[in-house]
């Protein structure tokens, strides 16, 4: 079962503003019984101030659909129509203390019902932006145009980002392959236009990009269970560091590199990498490896800092 927040449960078990406003001057109906959820939102707007004085709803749907509908009515009452239109579906979800990702469409339904009700109040016709068949993601009504705008405006290059920004694929994910193809196509076009680095472009089935950027700083290694004996003296510490480096050097030399100890200052160990290690993209991995071994040997957190040649 879903993990609903306490607020969602509260708004499902004791929903506020359920029912009908007989003389509502704005009514929005979205969804359909066939889709599994539907919401009829009724608002009463004071024409002089454009302020929403009351809101009620009827919902056919799951627990979070009912909670989202009720939350929406609570949020919009007292707001002017223009203020209310600034509300996004994320605001509804936030009001409820979050919704499970698979249930975000419930908040989207509330957002759409509000737009429909306001359009009805203003005497405008409200219609879906999408033509049936043009939708990539049916669950969230995402068509290729919407996907392309989101991808280009936000430089999206992964399926995870696409789901976060548009929610496409985030529910039943039956559209995953179609959306993958579309994302690949859009990214490829962006590369050829020179607005996206080819290395970052999404390629269906490719491995995710490396995390080399994240490795540039080597964080302190935290030992959860220090097993080391009593604290070492400075001489003992330097000896231990030299022993570890002596053990590790043959490995580095095997790859055409080398490493020497420059200084030890408290828990900071300065080393100089030389030979093939210089400019090696994996140098940070090497440094982390050394750091790990030193921390194990010394029994305390250590930071290994590579210093440039001639330091």
């Amino acid at each position: 079962m879903w993990e609903y927040s306490d607020k969602v449960k509260e708004y499902f078990f004791n929903p506020k503003n359920v029912g009908v406003i007989e003389d509502a001057n704005g009514v929005g109906e979205v969804g359909a019984i066939a889709c599994g959820d539907a919401l009829k939102l009724m608002i009463q707007v004071d024409p002089d101030t454009d302020r929403i004085t009351s809101a009620r709803f009827q919902t056919f749907g799951c627990g979070s659909a009912i909670a989202s509908s009720s939350a929406l009515t609570e949020i919009i009452v007292g707001k002017t129509v223009d203020e209310a239109l600034k509300i996004t579906n994320q605001d509804i979800a936030d009001f409820l203390g979050g919704l499970p990702p698979e249930k975000m469409h419930c908040s989207v339904m509330g957002y759409e019902a509000l737009r429909a009700a306001v359009a009805n109040y203003r005497g405008e016709t409200w219609e879906d932006d999408h033509e049936e068949g043009a939708l990539l993601c049916k669950c969230f009504g995402v068509d290729e145009g919407m996907l392309e705008r989101a991808v280009r405006n936000n430089n999206l290059t992964s399926m995870e980002q696409v789901a976060q920004y548009t929610k496409a694929t985030a529910s039943c994910s039956t559209c995953a392959e179609t959306v993958e193809e579309a994302l690949e196509r859009i990214n490829a076009a962006m590369v050829s236009e020179g607005v996206l680095d080819a290395r970052d472009a999404f390629v269906a089935g490719a491995l995710p990009p490396t995390r080399r950027a994240a490795r540039k700083t080597s964080p302190l290694v935290e030992l959860s269970t220090p097993t080391a004996p009593a604290r070492l003296t400075t001489v003992q510490r330097i000896r231990a560091v030299e022993e570890v480096l002596t053990e590790l050097r043959p490995v580095l030399q095997g790859d055409g590199g080398d490493c020497e100890l420059v200084d030890v200052d408290g828990n900071k160990v300065m080393v100089r990498l030389s030979g093939a290690c210089v400019n090696c993209q994996l140098a940070s991995v090497t440094v982390q490896g050394i750091q790990q071994r030193l921390a194990e040997r010394l029994g305390e957190p250590v930071r290994v800092i590579p210093v440039p040649a001639g330091h």
Binding site: M1, G63, K138, C139, S171
Partner: peptide, 9 residues
């Protein structure tokens, strides 16, 4: 029901 299974159908 769809809503308990994660699918919308």
């Amino acid at each position: 029901s769809a809503c308990t299974s994660g699918s919308l159908e």
